[in-house]
């Protein structure tokens, strides 16, 4: 079993010009965790996920790779968080992408499950090795149904 047989070939995607507000609406409306972002030619650019939304509400000083890892001294209200989110809602989604490890159509199922486990993610984008285009997405649910189906 490989990524090609497991993946959803037509996932919902975002385009690079979509704003944070559009992405947030779509995530909340469809209860999706991950939205891949692809350009007009279908190239995979990264994933806008629920974690991107979390980041949007936090100060840059804690998001930096050398940033503060303990901010318990900051006493903030929800209003402050909402204010920060509001200031960023018109930014393009490309400012807030997560770069996930990707699979290729030939990647074996076991490797994909390991990517999910180690990456703490429930979906893995499947990208063509030659041209970098998004071919689909393997979600945890697809894998689970296949595995259960074999035993049913």
């Amino acid at each position: 079993m490989t990524a090609k047989t497991l993946m959803n070939p037509n996932p919902m995607t975002l385009s690079p010009s979509d704003t944070v507000a559009i992405a947030a609406d779509r995530i909340l409306q469809h209860h999706l965790r991950h939205l891949p972002v692809v350009d007009a030619q279908g190239h995979y650019l990264g994933t806008f996920s629920v974690y991107s939304l979390l980041k949007l509400t936090l100060p840059k000083a804690v998001l930096d790779k050398h940033g503060l890892d303990n901010v318990s001294f900051v006493t903030e209200h929800v209003a402050h968080l909402a204010q920060r989110f509001g200031g960023r809602r018109d930014e393009p989604v490309t400012n807030w992408l997560n770069i996930h490890e990707v699979a290729h159509p030939e990647t074996p199922a076991m490797e994909i499950m390991l990517l999910m486990l180690h990456g703490r993610t429930t979906s893995v984008p499947v990208v063509n090795k030659e041209n970098g285009r998004l071919e689909g997405i393997v979600s945890f649910w697809d894998v689970l149904e296949k595995v259960r189906g074999e035993n049913a």
Binding site: P59, K60, A61, D64
Partner: peptide, 9 residues
């Protein structure tokens, strides 16, 4: 620097 960034923000 992270503290400075937080404060200026």
């Amino acid at each position: 620097v992270p503290v400075a960034l937080l404060i200026t923000e």
